[in-house]
């Protein structure tokens, strides 16, 4: 069998805020393989985002072992993790997280600023990414001039610009109406079809329909981890 891109073995995360300990994740184990489309679902506070942050190398587990592309993340410094995020990962957030007064193109180019890509190539890559999300005509607008759906498309283009092996999407449709949300999910689905591995955190069932695999979290624990047929709307898990 193919090697997993990432593997979590019994990872836990305990937050310590002023002496009060909160467990966000308990002994979670999972593997994600290249090309997968994984949806992580669960009620708020179930640890979805924490799991995504650890998988996305933004945070470290307090316990357990997490390996990315075969190497334990304990072997990396924070700055090395930043380089891996820069070259191998893409992120899409619920709040879009764009630079509001920067242009669409500048927003898309942002990850390339921290890479070794030369300036002239950055422009080409950013334009290609804008085209991929259907924003080619609006690259000179500032982010604040765009609608919510357009902003999220900019965010996707930004996640895409460095050609990452995995794209992490944290509630990407959470701030959008269902029509724009559907368009965003179509784009994400297309990226998956082109070979990008997708990890999607969501609590909206319709978005999970695009996934091939569903992981359900409850109170920091993985309750279910099942494969589903794509577009299988009637799967019992959904009910």
């Amino acid at each position: 069998m193919e090697k997993p891109i990432l593997e979590a073995q019994n990872i836990s995360k305990v937050y310590d805020v002023d002496g009060t300990k909160t467990t966000a994740l308990r002994c979670a184990s999972l593997k994600i393989y290249p090309g997968e489309f994984v949806a992580i679902m669960g009620p708020s506070g179930s640890g979805k985002s924490t799991l995504l942050h650890i998988m996305g190398l933004l945070d470290r587990p307090t316990d357990g072992k997490y390996t990315f592309e075969g190497k334990s993340i304990n072997e990396y410094s924070d700055d090395e993790l930043a380089h891996i995020r820069n070259e191998r990962l893409g992120f899409v957030f619920q709040m879009f997280n764009l630079l509001p007064r920067a242009s669409v193109l500048e927003n898309i180019k942002l990850p390339l600023l921290y890479s070794h890509v030369p300036e002239n190539e950055r422009m080409t890559l950013a334009q290609k990414a804008a085209e991929a999300v259907g924003l080619k005509e609006r690259i000179d607008h500032t982010a604040s001039q765009l609608s919510g759906g357009e902003r999220q498309r900019v965010a996707i283009a930004r996640a895409l610009v460095n050609n990452p092996s995995i794209i992490f999407a944290d509630e990407p449709t959470g701030n959008l109406d269902s029509k724009s949300g559907g368009q965003i999910m179509d784009i994400i689905n297309k990226l998956n079809e082109k070979g990008h591995t997708i990890v999607l955190v969501t609590h909206e069932t319709y978005t999970a329909h695009y996934a091939q695999r569903l992981i359900r979290l409850y109170d920091g624990k993985i309750e279910d981890d099942i494969k589903v047929d794509k577009r299988n709307v009637d799967h019992e898990f959904m009910k």
Partner: peptide, 11 residues
Amino acid sequence: GLRKTVGATTK
């Protein structure tokens, strides 16, 4: 936070 997420180092 965003800059760090997309690859900016401390430096």
